[in-house]
Simulated assay, not measured.
Amino acid sequence: MKTPTLLVILFLVFKLAFSQRESTNDFFHYYHNSPTRDYTTLLIAPGTMGPNALPIPDILNGQVGTDSQFKVSIDNYYRDEDDDNGHTFKLDFRFPVVQNFMAFGLEWNLIDYFRVTNEVRDIIQLYKDDPGWSTDLGDIILKTFIQLTKEKRGLPSAMLVSVLKTTSGSIFDGRYTDLPAHWHYASLGKKLINHEIFRWQLNAMLGYYFWQTNQDDLEQNEGPLWGIETQFNHKKLEYAFGISGYNGWKFYGNDKPIQFKARLILTNEKFNYFAEYKTGLRDYPYTSINIGINWHPLSPFKLSE
């Protein structure tokens, strides 16, 4: 009995040792033109790439609104229990081409300044040594917002949001995917209390998320997108918090991220000042604090009554 038992133990040890990393036999050979630029082994999944590679979108409040938005912010993030931290300079532009009906938007993670140690590079399967603090260009994300219904009686306001993530971000250091992604969802908002100095509102989103991977047998991963938050407004203060996420369907890498998000906004006639806190609850190993300013002039275009 000793010999069979020993063989079983050896088999289990061997299996455990060599099953920690997925086989890369079916992966596309990205930038495989030199030993120092091989990104074949990267897992294209939200829980294994950089913090902005496959973002969970904002839930929003179901309204296109009347104001334009010009947001500038600095996102300061760190990887939970690992040595990966950095700062992202972000631009976010939204312009209603028709007030309360349709708007276009552009979000740009203009530049990332970060440090990823070799220990974290091993986790994300990036075989390029840590060069110290580095900078990479980020993705440009294009958005369309269309008002579907306005809130009345028992019905919430509803807005269709359609988003395309371009391939402008750099795959160097595993910060972005260098692959397209798109997501489409309905943003809903319903006021539960609506007084002059205090408002309580529930917001939600429901849709679908698609992103490209680097596997021959799974060129696209996808799954449902969801989120819910509660929002409070008191005079010039707005506070909201909630959870959101999406689910991939193949269990490829860590592809079912869930996040907790909270924001605090000080509103003004011309400028809003905001701080946003975000942390991963599943398949998103980062925590961040984003601080910025939002100039929100009235859009000049509106529908006639």
Rank of each mutant, 00 (worst) to 15 (best):
D84R: 10
Y30L: 09
P156C: 06
Y78H: 12
K150E: 08
K128W: 12
L264C: 07
F93R: 00
I171V: 08
F172A: 15
R282L: 02
A103E: 01
K90H: 03
S68A: 14
S168V: 14
N221T: 14
I228F: 03
L43C: 02
I124P: 02
P257F: 00
M102E: 01
S73L: 00
I56Q: 01
S304Q: 13
R153E: 06
E238R: 11
S134E: 15
R153M: 05
M1V: 08
I111Y: 10
W211F: 08
I56T: 11
Y78Q: 12
N294C: 04
E219Q: 07
A186Q: 06
Y277W: 06
W249F: 12
H234S: 15
P4F: 15
E81R: 04
L110E: 07
F89A: 01
Y239N: 11
N203L: 07
A53K: 13
T135S: 14
Q259E: 00
F260Q: 05
P51R: 09
E229K: 09
L160N: 05
R175Y: 09
W249G: 11
Y31Q: 03
L148A: 05
I44M: 03
V97L: 09
H234C: 13
H87Q: 14
T279C: 00
K270H: 12
V98Q: 03
F89I: 00
Y77H: 02
V163I: 14
T287P: 02
N109K: 01
T166N: 15
N118Q: 04
K152A: 08
N61Q: 11
P297R: 10
L6H: 08
F114G: 14
Y185A: 06
N85G: 15
T88G: 07
L42E: 03
L91G: 00
L6I: 11
Y31P: 02
M1C: 09
K235R: 12
T213Q: 01
N247V: 07
R199H: 13
I193H: 13
S162V: 12
T230S: 10
P57W: 01
K250M: 08
R79P: 01
M1D: 10
S244D: 07
L218H: 10
P257S: 06
S34E: 05
T177K: 13
T213E: 03
W211Y: 12
D75P: 02
D139F: 13
K250R: 10
Q20M: 06
D82F: 06
G207F: 10
L298I: 12
F95A: 02
K261Q: 04
Q99H: 12
F198A: 13
E22V: 04
S23L: 05
D67S: 15
G245R: 02
